[in-house]
């Protein structure tokens, strides 16, 4: 086991200890097929939570998106994203959102396309930025373009719950609070479906996974 593997296992363990990171596979079982998980984005921890909720053998082939300028700015960050998580780097050519953003440009999608062609699964946050209101903001079009180009890749809507309580914006130390990651039934782009209609449908599918308030 390499150092990166060990670090990954340790991070997943910490995420589970802090948040439980329970994966609820409601719409599809965890399977080794090519997938794009698209999720609501409320915290920096979102990616780690999804990753920790995945079964161990799926983690190696499931990759996040990371903004190149931020995540390569120090050696540690670079090591963490490239070695541990095998992140797909995108350049934020236009000042668009934060980590994991997918912009309207065709250009920024290129690394994602490469990764999908290589057979990997991806986790994307189509809102482009962290939403703090609870409800996801309208999705950006990257998901649509990927769905068009890769009809064989399953699109799995994902809802991450409670994570905003673990680490509110501006705080550094996470507080242990139980979170869940709910995976829904895969979505497919229909013939001739309009871009906006598809993106709204995708957003509704994510929102539908939100557990009812107790």
């Amino acid at each position: 086991m390499s150092l990166a593997d060990a670090a990954g296992t340790l991070l997943a363990l910490i995420a589970r200890l802090i948040t439980g990171a329970q994966g609820h596979w409601k719409g599809c079982p965890p399977m080794a097929e090519q997938r794009i998980y698209f999720a609501n984005h409320q915290s920096h921890l979102d990616w780690v939570l999804i990753w920790a909720a995945l079964p161990h053998d799926l983690r190696a082939s499931t990759r996040p998106i990371a903004a190149r300028d931020y995540w390569t700015s120090s050696r540690f960050k670079q090591w963490l994203t490239s070695e541990v998580f095998r992140a797909v780097y995108v350049s934020r050519t236009r000042a668009q959102g934060s980590t994991g953003s997918v912009t309207d440009d065709q250009d920024p999608l290129e690394p994602l396309v490469d990764a999908l062609q290589g057979g990997d699964s991806l986790v994307i946050f189509p809102e482009g930025t962290r939403s703090l209101k609870g409800e996801p903001v309208p999705f950006k079009s990257g998901l649509y373009h990927l769905a068009q180009q890769f009809p064989g890749v399953r699109l799995v809507p994902t809802w991450i719950d409670n994570v905003q309580r673990v680490m509110p914006k501006g705080e550094v130390v996470p507080v242990p609070i139980l979170c869940t990651v709910t995976f829904g039934a895969p979505l497919a782009l229909q013939d001739g479906e309009d871009k906006r209609a598809f993106l709204d449908r995708a957003r509704a599918a994510v929102l539908a996974l939100r557990p009812p308030a107790p």
Partner: peptide
């Protein structure tokens, strides 16, 4: 706290 049914199904938060 509003947790009426303490079964596994209702455990949204895994509690």
């Amino acid at each position: 706290a509003g947790v009426r049914f303490w079964g596994n199904r209702a455990s949204i938060t895994g509690a």
